[in-house]
Simulated assay, not measured.
Amino acid sequence: MENIVKETSLLERTGVFDEDSKRRFELRLTYNGMKGKKILVVGINPASNNIQVFDNTTNYLLNNLGVMGYSEIVVWNMFAEICVKLKPGQTIDNAENIEYLKGLLKEKFDAVLIGWGNTFIGNKKVQEVKQQVYELLKPFTKITYELIDNDKKYAGLRNIHPLFAGQRFSGQWKLRKYEFPKEEKTQKKEKDHANI
C-alpha cells in the first residue's frame, strides 16, 4: 500500500472533584500531540463523576470544538453538584466553585464559551451566580462567545447549551461574540442612592 497516512491522537481526560466525588470543579479534555487552541466552556452542572464515560454534552463538545481547532477543552460549570438534572435546592453553597473559576481564569485561553443554556430563568440564586461569572469574565469580553449555527437558523437564541446545539446543528457550530447583559437602570439607581 502506497500513500497511506496514519494519524493517532491521545485524548487525556482529567477531572477535579471534592473528596466525596459529589462535586466536580473541572473537566479537562486534551488531545495530546495536537497543536491547537484552548477554550473554557461555562456550563450549568456536571452530570457524572466518571471521567471514563462521556455524556452527550461532552461528546458534542469534543466532536464540534475539536474540528474547530480546539485541542484543549476545559469545562467549568456554574454549579459543581454532580447530578443528571440540577434542582433549585442544589444551588445554595457555591463559594468554593466560584473560587475555582478565579484560579482557572489565570490560565491563558483563546476563547471562553458561555454554554449554560436557558434553564432556571428567574431563579434568584442562578441569576446571582451568573452575575458573579459576568464580573469575573469582564477582562475577557473580547474572547467570550456563545454558540450559533452556520445557517443562523437559531440566531435568535442566546446562551445555547452544547447539548441543544449538538442535537440541532452538530457539525455546524460557529462562535458568536457574547453580549454581556447591561446593568438595569433600577439597580444602578439603587447603587447610586446607596452611595449618597
Rank of each mutant, 00 (worst) to 15 (best):
V5Q: 15
T8F: 03
L10G: 02
D20V: 09
S21D: 14
R23H: 15
R23G: 07
F25P: 09
E26I: 02
R28Y: 00
L29D: 00
G36L: 12
G36N: 08
L40C: 04
G43Q: 01
I44D: 03
S48H: 08
S48Y: 14
L61R: 05
M68L: 11
I73K: 04
W76P: 00
M78L: 11
I82T: 12
K87L: 13
Q90I: 11
D93M: 02
D93V: 06
N94P: 04
N97K: 11
V112W: 08
T119I: 05
F120K: 04
I121G: 00
Q127Y: 03
V129E: 00
K130L: 04
K130N: 09
Q132M: 09
Q132I: 01
V133P: 03
L137I: 14
P139A: 13
T141E: 15
L147G: 01
L147E: 01
I148E: 00
I148Q: 02
N150P: 00
D151S: 14
K152L: 07
G156H: 04
G156Q: 06
L157P: 00
H161F: 08
P162F: 12
L163G: 05
G166T: 07
Q167C: 10
S170D: 13
S170E: 05
K174Q: 08
L175Q: 14
R176K: 15
K182Y: 04
E184W: 05
N195R: 15
